[in-house]
Amino acid sequence: MGELRGSILAVIALLEARDKVAGGGAPVFFVENEDERQKLGLTLSRALDAMAHDLENGVLIIVRH
């Protein structure tokens, strides 16, 4: 995981948006609502030393730059 830059490390999706994400190597975390999504986004981005990006369709991706 050390130098994995530019690729999606994790995905956080609202349950309504589960059809918007398919497999690709990164783990997907499903959440029930926006607050949970934000909280998980914060935790994961800090844990992974990376940044959370909002795809505006209910999905957050965590990418290290």
């Binding site: 934000q38 986004g41 914060l42 981005s45 940044m51 959370a52 990006h53 909002d54 957050l60 991706i61």
Partner: peptide
Amino acid sequence: MNVGLRQS
């Protein structure tokens, strides 16, 4: 840039 977290 795209800032995903609301508090940020």
